[in-house]
Write a protein that binds this DNA or RNA. Structure first.
Lengths: 155, 155
DNA sequence: GATGGATGGTTCGCGGTACGAACGAGTATC
DNA sequence: GATACTCGTTCGTACCGCGAACCATCCATC
């Protein structure tokens, strides 16, 4: 019943614990850039383009009211900006400010470096196998683009 | 630069997104049992045995003050109990109440079912390969036993 | 057996997170 | 132009997470 060394870990436990691990790394990295995990996530989502609030809520899995506050706080730090949609004056488009873009880039790069270290015990082929398997899980479950897709540029 | 369909996903993105996915499933499951994610995590950690506060803080990656509050709130719901350590009257041992144990069991089982569905697009051998690779990452990075280790019993 | 540091936890104040309900403003439909 | 619908905000509530300050106990040393 106790955790036996060398015992085989099930896929459920492996998924949950690796998520826990990634979360911790992500939060640590964010903290060092003066961000919360959520703000970091927001910046990363906005890196490629701006989003409407509704869209953004769906991507991040947040209720409208939750997102409103998150954008408020992040805007107060000057990292994000609300722009009115010219085609619909109710709607709001949220985009990075210049400062936000810069910080997002740095935070993203640093976080990538840290996450990349996690599977350093695996060989290149194993790492690729892991990426492929996880990618299928991610795609099968239609995970929104919560983290950028640029890491194919990074070797 | 945009997300091309069929493009190969790097291991970093795959890890981050799968973590995001698992988190969402975990939080959803907790919510349906009237728990927050953190309370669910706490219950799961306590399933095999009771812990001291310090120990528990390390396992969950929380500061002492954060944990104190979490235990308070969870105890107020009758799911967890503080017991004084007979060998050290400063120390506190936190354990599940009967109700907490019952709820933990149900929540754990349901969460496992849901997480298990995530890699349903993989074949048996692929799922096992994924489990093995992730297990190595988890072990290499010394992730604490934040989720139970019993899922080898579940086929 | 007194003293002076470690150690285990709690409390407090602060900012952040997340939600649903209620609301106002704008758009769309008819 | 009335009605319904959508977009987003505000509000109240509960929760989370931290550091700093604090208290009680333990323990090592004298």
């Amino acid at each position: 019943m106790a955790e036996a060394v060398g015992e085989r870990m099930g896929v459920v436990t492996a998924l949950v614990r690796s998520a826990f691990l990634v979360d911790a790394v992500y939060a640590d990295s964010a903290r060092e850039y003066g961000l919360t995990q959520q703000q970091g996530q927001l910046l990363c989502v906005l890196m490629p383009r701006s989003y409407g609030m509704g869209e953004l809520g769906e991507v991040l899995g947040l209720a409208k009211s939750s997102l409103s506050g998150l954008v408020d706080r992040t805007a107060k730090r000057g990292l994000v900006r609300r722009e009115t949609d010219p085609s619909d004056s109710r709607a709001v488009r949220v985009g990075l400010t210049e400062e936000g873009g810069r910080l997002a880039g740095e935070f993203y790069a640093e976080t990538c470096r840290r996450i990349e270290r996690l599977p350093s015990g695996l060989g290149d082929d194993e790492r690729q196998a892991l990426a492929d398997l996880l990618a299928r899980v991610v795609r099968d479950n239609e995970v929104p683009p919560v983290f950028m897709v640029l890491d194919e540029d990074q070797g």
